[in-house]
């Protein structure tokens, strides 16, 4: 399927999203801007041949962005956040990550009790270990693990995830 948007339109829509992602991963503004430029060079190079029937533009640009960040950390031998197993060699395989899947996640999270939702967000979004979360929520580590498992079971009732 041919691209329905021009490169300029795509750049305008996705540059803020790419920068937002970069800032969430990289504290240096200079490096973040530099990497965002790298992302859009890669996007520009493949834009004409990109096939929208394989993946949405959003998913494709996200995957290019994510892999660019992984390369950045790999070069600097920093692996605390992104492991080798996270590297996606194929730019288009993650078809499931789309706006709809985030809406589904939002629906599911809204149904959780506040404490369970807090644990899920702090662990999976903020990247905290359960050991770090427990004292913040004024609970024991073992109880935190228990509530975390309960939250996962409840989430699985509302949505499907790996």
């Amino acid at each position: 399927m041919k691209n329905t948007q021009t490169y300029e339109e795509v750049y305008k829509v996705y540059y803020p999203k790419v920068m937002g992602y970069m800032h969430s991963k990289i504290s240096s503004s200079y490096d973040a801007e530099d990497l965002a430029s790298t992302v859009f060079i890669k996007v520009y190079e493949k834009f004409e041949t990109f096939d929208q029937s394989k993946a949405s533009i959003s998913t494709w640009i996200y995957t290019v962005t994510r892999n660019t960040v992984i390369d950045y950390f790999r070069v600097r031998k920093v692996h605390e956040e992104i492991g080798e197993e996270d590297i996606v060699e194929d730019d288009t395989y993650q078809g499931i990550l789309d706006a709809e899947s985030l809406e589904e996640l939002a629906d599911a999270l809204e149904k959780l009790p506040e404490r369970e939702r807090d644990i899920i967000i702090l662990h999976y979004y903020s990247g905290m270990q359960l050991k770090e979360i427990a004292p913040k929520l004024n609970m024991s580590y073992s109880n935190c693990k228990l509530v975390h498992n309960k939250a996962l079971m409840r989430l699985r009732q509302y949505m499907t995830f790996d």
Binding site: L97, A99, S101, E103, L105, I120, Y124, Y125
Partner: peptide, 15 residues
């Protein structure tokens, strides 16, 4: 996708 993937995608998509 895993939960980790979904939350990572959120950092890009900003639902």
């Amino acid at each position: 996708a895993s939960l980790k993937d979904l939350f990572d995608y959120q950092k890009f998509a900003g639902n």
